[in-house]
Design a binder for these strands. Sequence first.
DNA 1: ACCATTTAGGACCGATAGGTACAAAACTAA
DNA 2: TTAGTTTTGTACCTATCGGTCCTAAATGGT
Lengths: 192, 192
Amino acid sequence: MARPQAFDTQEALHCAMHVFWRKGYEATSLSDLLQATGLSKSSLYATFGSKHDLMLKAFDKYRTDRQLDMSRMLDVTPARPGIEAFFRMIVEDVRSPEQGSGCMSINQAVELAPHDTEIRCRIESDFQAIEQALAHAIDRGQADGSVTAKCPPADLAKLMVVAFPGLQVLTRSGIERLRVDEGLALVLALLD
Amino acid sequence: MARPQAFDTQEALHCAMHVFWRKGYEATSLSDLLQATGLSKSSLYATFGSKHDLMLKAFDKYRTDRQLDMSRMLDVTPARPGIEAFFRMIVEDVRSPEQGSGCMSINQAVELAPHDTEIRCRIESDFQAIEQALAHAIDRGQADGSVTAKCPPADLAKLMVVAFPGLQVLTRSGIERLRVDEGLALVLALLD
DNA sequence: ACCATTTAGGACCGATAGGTACAAAACTAA
DNA sequence: TTAGTTTTGTACCTATCGGTCCTAAATGGT
């Protein structure tokens, strides 16, 4: 019928996602996106719509990807190492120079959520999902004895969902590794 | 000698600070600053230099102002209510529509710190100051019995310095008030 | 009154932002 | 081979960005 697309839509979305993840929304320019995806301007607009539309699609991709990562990470037995790995991941993710910059949901909670309803709803649901997953893992941890039973799982999960963005921000602010690691250790010690 | 300035430099800096505080750096345009301060472009540049210079000056003003606030808030007896007020302040500060948006240091830790050394140094010292002030308050709290003695002040302070940006991000992401309040209560319960 | 000096207003600058329009190119079905 | 459809490259658009420059207005000292 007609000329076929010369690029893979999902792959382009993946590239765009990484740019938004690393640089945030405002700091990402159209030309950044064109360069990262390799598309021409017209292809990009025809395929994804505006920059904001693309951001939403990229963010949604990020969210489903990460949701899966989180499940895999937290659904191990005993539960404790999974939780610890989850928290270590944020910190190391922020530190790694190119992979991204920590959790994109947290970054967007700061950048866009205050003024953008569509982003805000997604983030609200993300934090809720994290809390639920943590609560579930802690619950199992209490059952298998790897997590202290002196505190309700829901409360521990809520506390850790506060610590989660806290650690990311601290790491991102360029504070010495050692200090962040101490904070991380203390957060994990709440599980004792 | 010469024509006198028609504006108060400190007052203009104060206005500029509030804009940067509320909107962040990139989202604040020159015209935002001109409108907020009431200055003409030439006056602004003659007085403060570039946008980035102005940001640094505004940020420094914010930091000294807040350092004072924090000291006043945490230097009370018994110590516990001061600590609680300090944490309640962040949350309420983010919620209040016009005052600002939580702690500017945290906002800048996310926006500029990763790429801007001058900002990063300031923020590092800010977090250190907060931790010290908290540690000192907790120490006094343990002495006057308002804070649990089952944990070293330094550890408790480190934990709370993680919770501090965590609560701000959670609040800023537009999550229901109730859920943030629960998180806040649990953080403060660490002092029991 | 006048001069030296500094402020203030605004025109102007190049660069870049996000976004649109359009025509040529590439492909498939007939 | 050609008709019909979609993609793609490029030129172009307006708005705005941070920043400079120059002139005119305002002032205090002499």
